[in-house]
Design a protein around this nucleic acid. Structure first.
Lengths: 198, 198
DNA sequence: GTCTATAGGTTGATAGAC
DNA sequence: GTCTATCAACCTATAGAC
């Protein structure tokens, strides 16, 4: 793991990671070869190893950087003194913002976290998963307790419903095409809270 | 593509396809090797080619067989004279039944259809995708027209919401553990129609 | 920072014996 | 219906020249 010292090295590194992230997101981690990445970067595969230890190091850096940012935002919501409904809405919107700003990272996490999590070095993925569950369950329970959510909800099932509904949008949402991520978040929140019935 | 003539050949073929389906579902089509399949079946990789032309033939047979059954059920719902709300509910329930009865096939379709669809031989996957969209959009539009659904719904977004919400459950639902698929369908339908607000 | 060259392993698939 | 044996292509990663 070479330490970037100059500005050029840091930007080149970042550039290569962005290229890798796009390929990992499009084809999956295991189906993206180091040659794919090198080709897209206009260099040969061996040259990549001047910047990174291995293919795993690349996806590691991509995912851990992203998750640090995302969970910082969740923590801020949990710590706020908004009412439960507002917190839940904010959490949904933060997730759609992540899809807008980091679509590749979200896609990689959705598609490859289960596989990567089987390796020791990616143990933090499981921790983050548990942490995410804790965030949503806390918000749902607070909502039920304060009377803004139905009291007959199955909390675990509701958690899965919200989690899946939000993140799966990364499969079809394309920044700049069709509805904006804020419009989509509005409508998702509306369906989630009030349903589609007349 | 060897034609099965005897009963033994047909069952052996089915047995091998079941083994392949589980591996494709667990690890993805591209990350499952013919050796993985042969190992799980207790034979050597070369022997698989006595039964199938290629790895692609296997996944082709798995997916096309499943989709024929599934879309037969959708057609029956569309053709019925139930009201729009009942049809929508039935379509959701049929999808959860498919997850219960054919979890591997559903998972393969969810994870690998985009990739497989890029090959000519799997062109039918795109047709089926368009057909599925047509089914849901028809039901939603009928619901709006007959006044059982909100008339301010974005039909396309609602279609995606329902489709994603239903099928993504294949990621965590395990037959025989926790809630039954009918219980889950009940709660999903309830959230979808009425939301989670108190 | 990139290239040349290559090691060592895995891949899907085939030919022919049993 | 399965095995033995194998091929050509592809994989991640390394060593050292430029």
């Amino acid at each position: 793991m070479p330490e970037p010292t100059t500005v050029e090295a840091r930007t080149r590194r970042t550039e290569l990671l962005a290229i890798a992230a796009q390929l990992f997101a499009d084809k999956g981690f295991r189906n993206t070869t180091v040659r794919d990445i090198a080709d897209a970067a206009g260099i040969l595969s061996g040259s990549l190893y001047h910047h990174f230890d291995s293919k795993e190091s690349m996806v590691d850096e991509i995912l851990s950087t992203f998750q640090e940012e995302l969970f910082g935002q969740y923590d801020a919501i949990l710590a706020s003194d908004d009412d439960a409904r507002t917190k839940l809405e904010r959490a949904v919107r933060v997730s759609f913002e992540a899809i807008e700003n980091h679509p590749h990272e979200v896609a990689i996490y959705q598609n490859d976290a289960d596989f990567l999590g089987t390796f020791d070095r990616f143990g933090y993925l499981k921790d983050r998963n548990a942490q995410s569950r804790q965030v949503w369950v806390t918000l749902i329970e607070e909502g039920v307790r304060t009377g803004v959510l139905r009291d007959d909800l199955d909390v675990t099932l509701t958690y899965r419903f919200i989690r899946d509904t939000v993140w799966v949008a990364v499969r079809w949402y394309r920044p700049g095409r069709g509805l904006s991520h804020t419009d989509i978040a509005d409508q998702y929140v509306r369906i989630l809270l009030d349903g589609i019935s007349a």
